[in-house]
Amino acid sequence: MSKRSPFLISCMAFGFAFLYVPLLLLMIYSFNDSKLVTVWGGFSTRWYGELFQDDQILGAARTSLVIAAMSATLSTILGTICGLVLARFGRFRGRTLFSGMITAPLVMPEVITGLSILLLFVALEQLIGWPEGRGMTTITIAHVTFTMAYVTIIIQSRLGQMDESIEEAAMDLGARPLKVFFLITLPIIAPALLSGWLLSFTLSLDDLVIASFTAGPSSTTLPMVVFSSVRLGVTPKINALATLLVSAAAFCIVIAAIIMRRAERERERAIAKAMAEQEQM
């Protein structure tokens, strides 16, 4: 291996420091005994204890998780349908417009998305009496509108890579189109569905702006609680909460990476074995 220049090494160190020092500080200070966030008062886990006593934070976390799970599921279903149309419908009039409109929420400012959805909900309530007030339902619907775009893009690109003759073969062997979709297409694109779901889940969990517009008094999400409590002054409890969230995310990523690595290695071994047998023949 060639010798790396000190310049490159310091560049790398600076880059990583830029990304991770704030997080590291936050994690360290979550174990701070002092009530003041900026003064070190010795090691302690008391803030973790207090965190689990705080009903407001726990309730908000539960709300956020439920909303994230519901909106991820809904947007995965809708996004898959859109992706399927874009990838399999061939050329039709207004296709470019359709795909543009599906992906537009990706670049739309969140404030505008949030505001417009709020106006829609208010108008709907006056017109047909639904949704009654704002709460988890409205937040979920609002989240679906923008997470769906991500799922659509993931599914569309996955279907674009898939050999269409696989679906034709299933049809040729006697399966009707709906059966082909559930028996052949869906299992093949399942990993894309999963990553679409996970992405929607995290996006929904993260979202502050759109949730603030569409939330009601009884439905405060975790980002909203964090944001409002920080405005009143940061407590080390928030540090503890953030540390838990970062650790959970890191844990999930590591597990997913390990599973994927293992599957890939298994596949390579199997291919090598098949090739060796072929040569013996």
């Binding site: 003759s165 696989i166 034709e168 073969a169 062997l173």
Partner: peptide, 20 residues
């Protein structure tokens, strides 16, 4: 008549085996 109701079968150039 749609493909799934025809008494013929096809072998595809890419083989189109179901990978899963």
């Amino acid at each position: 008549i749609p493909p799934f109701e025809r008494p013929v079968n096809m072998m595809f150039q890419s083989y189109a085996l179901f990978p899963h």
